[in-house]
Amino acid sequence: MELVSVKDLTKTYSKHNVVDHVSFDLHPGKCVALLGPNGAGKTTTLRMLAGFIQPTSGTISFNEDTLSKDFRKYVGYLPQHPSFYPWISGEEFLHYAGQLAGLTKHEVSDRSEKLLQLVHLTDAGKKRIGKYSGGMKQRLGIAQALIHQPKLIMLDEPVSSLDPIGRREVLNLIRELKKDATVLFSTHILNDAEEVSEEILLMNDGKLIEQGPISEIRGMQQTVTIRLAFEKEPKFIHEKLKEIDSVYQVTEQNGTFDVSVHDLNAARDTIFSRVQEEGWELSLFEITSGTLEDIFMKAVNK
């Protein structure tokens, strides 16, 4: 049973379809990445799902509640650049957000204590938000989105403005979150999507152009590319690679070889046996094709 079902969702701003007949379902306990280049309509889609922009046409239905139109109580939302009141402390803001969502004073202090712990802000909880760093604000943003235990958590570009450490923390947090709720997050960084999500929705120019489990989408790829580099380039390596069965193309760029193959397993076995037999000093072996980047580029350029 799906948690949310979206049908023909469309949003038109001055005759331009920013979101164009998008339909998908979200299932409980899954982490879904909403991918797409900038301006693809990701944020608008999330805002409609968050319930504070009305779609021009189409429907969003929560299986919890088909009657009421206001489903904001089931949704936790973190905007791309969350901003807070600088004069309020992190803890106070969580109290405010929780009470707005209908929690009692008692519930909210319980909950905010746990959340501050979850996002590692226990010590900073009493400090005014004006003194917070960007990463701390992002984490507080996640905490405020979770305060009312929503069924669906939506994060708009949660990691794109963070440094590598902050990014790692937030990705780990997302992994935690999907234990209790459905997570939908938008990103244009494909690695992040691959790392934590099971399913992807790929948007371009307002349209949903690809959707499904990552493994399935990857399986639709016809060919695979292996990227190779060597500490010391063996003689005639270009020719030797080309002789391998199922290899049909080898390109070289700055000492890195992109080897396109039909059968990944056979090609991989051959390459490794050659590495042993002929003592190739391999420094890089990477399967680059079938990654989201490939799918992404193909789908967007279609």
Binding site: D70, V75, S83, F84, A97, L100, A101
Partner: peptide, 10 residues
């Protein structure tokens, strides 16, 4: 932008 956070609550 804080309005967006407030509005995301019911």
């Amino acid at each position: 932008g804080v309005y967006e956070l407030i509005l995301a609550k019911p």
